[in-house]
């Protein structure tokens, strides 16, 4: 595990077992301020479970999660005020307008000057014109951007993004990737990013963690990963890991 002195998130030997099935297996990593880390893996590799463990939605079987130097189990509410989350599988109440939804979450997160902040994030995601639209009437791409607005409302120091470009067309997906890079540069937000879109990962992430059956089996910058696996694209790495992850696990352990 790479040691980061200015780590925003530290995960140490994290394990989660559901009814005898190991979903996350002794996972250790950390994320520094301003770093974007991609969490990759096939379906069922343990990505979402890892995100939910970090959010404190799931209690670990063993191991420790420290965010901003504090244990998530003991300081969950204080920690959650300083981080945020967006997932393609989560929605906002459909009969409220975009502005109402964002205003309510701004209040829950204790955002000062909420109205200005909402206007700012709506501009940032280029959806200011949707301010008074009901979220239930938005396209999935627009909804994804509203979810990202919600995730940026409290100017988080740590942002967890679960497949943030999954339902976006290539044009908007590209804009979102650029935006995330821009936010990272300007505000130095640390991000943990899951995606099945390898282009997302190559363009956005500084570092990648490949998960297979709950274990990290490869870790490094996109370039380091490509060199290590002697492939030209991350997609090839992804397929190789998905199909022969067991062998790679044993090689890594040796």
């Amino acid at each position: 595990m790479r040691r980061c002195e200015d780590a925003v998130l530290r995960v140490h030997e994290l394990t989660k077992v559901f009814d005898g099935i190991v979903a996350v297996d002794r996972v250790s990593f950390s994320i520094s301020r301003g770093e974007i880390v991609g969490l990759l893996g096939a379906n069922g590799a343990g990505k979402t479970t890892t995100l939910h463990l970090i959010l404190g939605l799931i209690r670990p079987t063993s191991g420790r999660i420290e965010i901003f130097g504090r244990d998530i189990e003991r300081h969950r509410i204080e920690i959650l005020r300083r981080m945020n989350f967006s997932s393609v599988g989560v929605n906002l109440p459909p009969n409220l307008t975009v502005w109402e939804n964002l205003w309510l979450f701004a209040q829950l997160y204790g955002v000062s000057r909420a109205q200005e902040r909402i206007a700012e994030v709506l501009e940032l995601l280029e959806i200011a014109h949707l301010r008074d639209a009901r979220t239930g009437r938005l396209s999935s791409g627009e909804m994804t951007r509203v979810n990202l607005c919600k995730a940026l409302l409290n100017d988080p120091e740590l942002l967890l993004l679960d497949e943030p470009t999954a339902s976006l067309d290539p044009n908007i997906a590209d804009k979102v990737r650029r935006l995330l890079r821009q936010i990272q540069r300007e505000r130095r937000i640390a991000m943990l990013y899951t995606s099945h879109n390898m282009r997302d990962i190559e363009e956005v992430c500084d570092r990648i963690l490949f998960l297979h059956q709950g274990r990290i089996i490869a870790e490094g910058s996109p370039r380091e990963i490509l060199e290590h696996f002697r492939t030209r694209t991350l997609e090839e790495v992804f397929i190789r890991i998905a199909r022969s992850g067991e062998i790679l696990v044993s090689q890594r352990e040796r």
Partner: peptide
């Protein structure tokens, strides 16, 4: 999840 990922 949005609610329980917020400080609530």
């Amino acid at each position: 999840l949005n609610i329980f990922c917020a400080p609530v």
